[in-house]
């Protein structure tokens, strides 16, 4: 077992982890945050997306020991208490979800996209979501949600 430190959603955790445990295993099993999902376990579906030091990553592809000392944001860390983040609110308003399994990863990828580009075109949004698979929606309402979120963020809502 190896000892690591993780800051997850602002909380410091000191953890004993197996050297082969992934960041996703540790977030879900040890810290108990189950918002990040495991779909494929090999970095193809993006359901496990979390933000690590400002970058959207597939938590299933990162060993927990590699994340030692990093700041992680999971979907549980996005809202301000009861108040949804504008991206979350836009997904609710527009209906950018169905089964919801890809939704946490989708929203975190959208956050990184909008952090870098406040006014993305449809093509830029599609490109930004390339690593996040959704079988339910056909992506249309997800793209519309992200456009609406960009507008809300610009208006400071």
């Amino acid at each position: 077992m190896k000892e690591i430190m993780l800051n997850v959603n602002g909380n410091e955790h000191t953890l004993q982890v197996k050297p082969w445990a992934t960041l996703l295993d540790v977030i879900r099993e040890d810290i108990g945050l189950t918002g990040a999902k495991e779909g494929c376990g090999e970095g193809e579906c993006g359901a496990c997306t979390v933000i690590m030091d400002g970058v959207a990553v597939n938590a299933c592809l990162i060993l927990a020991v590699e994340a030692n000392g990093k700041h992680i944001t999971t979907i549980e860390g996005l809202a301000d208490g009861e108040k949804l983040h504008p991206i979350q609110q836009a997904f609710v308003d527009i209906g950018g979800l169905q089964c919801g399994f890809c939704t946490p990863g989708m929203i975190l990828s959208a956050k990184i996209l909008l952090d870098k580009n406040q006014d993305p075109t449809d093509e830029e949004i599609r490109k930004g979501l390339e690593g996040n698979f959704c079988r339910c929606t056909g992506y249309t309402k997800i793209i519309q949600s992200i456009k609406a979120a960009a507008q809300m963020l610009k208006e400071g809502r």
């Binding site: 879900r28 945050l33 189950t34 918002g35 990040a36 999902k37 495991e38 999971t74 979907i75 549980e76 996005l78 809202a79 949804l84 979350q88 997904f91 609710v92 308003d93 209906g95 979800l97 919801g100 399994f101 939704t103 946490p104 929203i107």
Partner: peptide, 18 residues
């Protein structure tokens, strides 16, 4: 809005593996 939307966007909807 979908009745389950808030739980899902907050990552609070629990699936079997959770």
């Amino acid at each position: 809005p979908r009745i389950d939307a808030k739980e899902k966007v907050m990552g609070q909807a629990k699936y079997a593996a959770d």
